[in-house]
Design a protein around this nucleic acid. Structure first.
Length: 254
DNA sequence: CGCATGGCCCTTA
DNA sequence: TTAAGGGCCATGC
């Protein structure tokens, strides 16, 4: 018998045991799941008593879950509060997550990504800087590739510094589609990038932002100035926005 | 500019 | 235990 078959058998038996257990115990052993519409199509979400642990397309979900999480999976009577709207349009970010079993690094990455507001994007390097590992840029991408809860941890809002969408577990096109649904104009970001503009500043507030920061979007054309780096903006007398925190992606960039 | 390359660091096989 | 490689990025032609 292969190891995988043995493992499947074990999971199945655990599930059978769990089915007869009292409710409280059951919910500590098994996960529950629901399906819901999302910009990626119909998705399913599995949750434990700690929070949502896994989100993937509804098609083939149970098998994906078994491979990745390996814990009995039972249907849920109702989803946790806020989950369905969060999956539908990414507006509610208050859904509890079960991130046990992840590395510290991956958890740090996911929690940082969760702070990116709907309608905005940040580069991979910004996440790296935020978690105190400014050089672990590629590793951030690796960590996001393993995001167990896409949409809830909005990894689609992390893009390349040059305005390219970058990779995505469901493909780059899907990433652009989700961002478009959230109101992000990637085309404009790429245009700016072509002119070497990665930050926008306002000469009325003296603040420099990432272009998608809601503060940056209110700058009128007459007062808007583009910059190639935070360092250059600071040299021109601007300070980084305290909302979007455009820390210098790389210290050397001048 | 567009492309290639080298550095970086976490994860997996 | 190690080595290879990835959802990147700055730099050098």
């Amino acid at each position: 018998m292969t190891q995988e078959t043995a493992q499947d058998r074990l999971i199945e038996e655990l599930g059978a045991l769990a089915a007869d257990a009292p409710d409280g115990l059951l919910d500590r052993i098994a996960a529950r799941w629901i399906t819901a519409p999302s910009p990626l199509g119909e998705v399913a979400a599995a949750f434990t008593d700690h929070g949502v642990a896994y989100v993937r397309p509804a098609r083939g979900f149970a098998e994906d879950f078994r491979k990745r999480v390996g814990r009995p999976l039972l249907p849920a009577a109702r989803p946790p509060a806020g989950l369905v709207p969060a999956l539908r349009d990414g507006r509610s970010s208050r859904v509890g997550l079960d991130l046990r079993g992840l590395s510290d690094f991956q958890r740090d990455v996911l929690l940082a990504v969760r702070t990116i507001p709907r309608g905005e994007v940040r580069p991979y390097g910004w996440i790296a800087a935020r978690i105190g590992r400014p050089k672990a840029v590629r590793a951030v991408g690796t960590a996001l590739g393993g995001n167990p809860v896409p949409l809830l941890v909005p990894c689609h809002r992390v893009i390349r510094f040059d305005g390219g969408a970058g990779e995505y577990m469901f493909g780059g096109a899907a990433k652009e589609r989700v961002l478009l649904a959230e109101g992000v104009d990637l085309e404009r970001l790429r245009e700016l990038a072509r002119e070497r503009v990665f930050y926008l500043a306002s000469d009325t507030t003296g603040v420099v932002c990432f272009p998608t920061c809601h503060n940056a979007r209110r700058i009128t054309a007459a007062h808007r100035h583009g910059f190639r780096s935070v360092a250059r903006a600071e040299a021109a007398g601007y300070r980084p926005c305290r909302t979007c925190r455009p820390v210098a992606a790389q210290a050397a960039a001048g």
